[in-house]
């Protein structure tokens, strides 16, 4: 299991790719509110453009991250609280590795939700987030460490279940 990156920074500052050596990485840190999530995803998209990832994978990353980040905003920190979210994306051999760290509440039961489809009637207006995440992301892992949530996953081309 990959180590949970640390330390969590104390202020929201978009960072340039961190290390001059090793695989290319992009890191964005922002506040847990919906507008900041939107801005964070847009700046990630700009950074990711330089990692040489194909468009489908980039779209899948944006979608999975949006779902993960919405959950951080709505559930980990909750509407009444704000905190920082730290997103790191790396590209190795056309695959994407991504880690999301927040200091909000742990996931219920200390585990990721199963992502089972919501009941079809009445037509559901929610409960789709983990359904999407589980279908697109591989090697999902979640850990609670030192009061922080650490979620990581990998995205590889050609494994989109919906394309089968």
């Amino acid at each position: 299991m990959r180590p949970c990156p640390r330390p969590m920074p104390t202020e929201a500052t978009p960072r340039a790719p961190a290390a001059p050596t090793g695989p290319p990485r992009v890191r964005v840190i922002f506040q847990s509110d919906p507008m900041a999530v939107r801005a964070g995803l847009l700046s990630l998209r700009q950074g990711i453009g330089r990692l040489g990832i194909d468009g489908d994978l980039e779209g899948a990353l944006e979608l999975v991250l949006a779902e993960v980040l919405n959950n951080v905003v709505e559930h980990a920190y909750g509407a009444a609280a704000r905190g920082l979210v730290d997103v790191r994306v790396g590209a190795v051999r056309g695959q994407i590795d991504c880690t999301v760290v927040d200091a909000g509440r742990p996931m219920p039961g200390g585990a990721m939700p199963p992502g089972t489809p919501p009941a079809p009637f009445p037509e559901p207006e929610g409960g789709f987030g983990w359904m999407i995440i589980r279908q697109l992301a591989q090697d999902l892992s979640y850990r609670r460490e030192d009061g922080r949530n650490c979620l990581s996953f990998r995205l590889a081309g050609g494994l989109d279940a919906s394309a089968a």
Partner: peptide, 13 residues
């Protein structure tokens, strides 16, 4: 388009 269609497909909506 693209990701929008994908979301409807993945969620069976």
């Amino acid at each position: 388009r693209g990701t929008v269609a994908k979301v409807f497909r993945l969620t069976r909506m």
